[in-house]
């Protein structure tokens, strides 16, 4: 390992030490108004800096969420800047991931003819960071215009081959698989090229886990909501095999129903680590269980790895889960959901 990166590992662990604890989530869950939750985040957590100068008493839910997203991204940038890691290709992983997320969102809104809504959900802080013009992307009225915006990026070659139907509808799932496949293979290739030794192995293991979990969740959804067969699910899944073998993945996809799917999953390396799996479980619980498992793995990597890339990658995953938890609580507060309901939705490992 490059000894000079030790400082990043230590810093990542130090920042992780400030994370929200269960008592913070419980406190947030007891808040009756979004403004009260924002005030708690400002006064009592490490999100305080993100709310500098912000008047939480009149904050809008959307504004609060955009501040949280910005805080998440700022944290990543600060950690990268700490030892000038941004110049190394792998450390652009969050930039690429966020760009892909925005592209997919824009396609979704375009298909629904709600381009004007996309601009509202667009994270303003990311406008100056993205490698293409997000405002122009929001203005695009067709897939062709959209491709024009990303012409000088790697996404162009991925998306340009995709045909719209006669109504101009873009095949979203095809785009999603294509873009995510690009991201996962970019991650894998960059990790293999840039790193050596145990750090590289740990990093690839984390990436593989992420690939598997995306595939497991997507396949479960396709099985549950559309009843698709193995062949069709495979077509719409990421073409990678992480820690699940090709044979095991095929068995999973070819399950007759979700109960058989869960039974098969229990025999995999992931299923063996999950106590909360049971047949007939709700989709949200199923996904939460997998996310909890992924968090546990990320935590383990963060604790034991001495690689800056592994630490940062694992940490950003945990941060993302944390932001999602806060957003979940805020939405629940807005819709006046009960505290036990909120707590059930949180991914706390």
């Amino acid at each position: 390992m490059n000894a000079s990166k030790n400082a990043t590992v230590t810093r990542v662990r130090a920042v992780y030490g400030k994370r929200l604890m269960e008592k913070d989530y419980n406190e947030l869950c007891t808040r009756k108004r979004v403004a009260e939750a924002a005030e708690y985040l400002k006064r009592s957590t490490y999100y305080g800096d993100a709310f500098n100068g912000i008047d939480t008493s009149s904050i809008h839910r959307g504004h609060l969420e955009s501040l949280l997203q910005k805080a998440f991204y700022d944290r990543y940038e600060k950690l990268c800047d700490f030892q000038q890691l941004s110049g190394e290709p792998f450390y652009n992983f969050l930039l690429i991931r966020t760009e892909i997320r925005e592209l997919l969102k824009a396609i979704l809104y375009l298909n629904n003819e709600k381009e004007d809504v996309y601009i509202e959900t667009l994270p303003a802080f990311f406008v100056k960071k993205a490698t293409f013009d997000l405002i122009e992307l929001a203005k695009a009225k067709s897939f062709r215009e959209m491709l024009g915006v990303v012409r000088n990026t790697p996404y162009y070659s991925i998306l340009s081959g995709i045909e719209t139907d006669k109504n101009g509808i873009v095949p979203y799932t095809v785009c999603e698989v294509a873009l995510r496949s690009y991201y996962m293979s970019w991650l894998n290739n960059t990790a293999r090229e840039q790193f050596r030794g145990s750090g590289r192995d740990e990093l690839i293991r984390l990436i593989n886990v992420q690939t598997d979990i995306i595939n497991i969740i997507n396949a479960y959804r396709m099985k549950k909501y559309f009843g698709w067969d193995g062949e069709r699910i495979k077509k719409h899944s990421l073409p990678f095999y992480g820690r699940i073998s090709r044979k095991k993945q095929a068995d999973l996809f070819e399950s007759a129903d979700t109960d058989e799917y869960i039974r098969t999953l229990k025999t995999t390396v992931y299923g063996r680590q999950m106590d909360g799996l049971y047949e007939g479980m709700e989709s949200s619980r199923f996904e939460a269980e997998l996310y909890r498992l992924q968090c546990r793995m990320a935590k383990r990597a963060l604790r034991f790895s001495d690689s800056a890339a592994v630490s940062l990658y694992a940490f950003m995953h945990l941060c993302e889960v944390e932001v999602n938890n806060i957003v979940t609580i805020i939405e629940c507060i807005r819709y006046e959901k009960s505290i036990p309901y909120m707590q059930e939705l949180l991914v706390i490992s």
Binding site: I54, H63, S66, A124, F125, V127, K128, I135, A138, K139
Partner: peptide, 10 residues
């Protein structure tokens, strides 16, 4: 909010 100002060009 300052972040929102960048969206005005839209």
């Amino acid at each position: 909010p300052n972040e929102s100002a960048v969206k005005l060009s839209y």
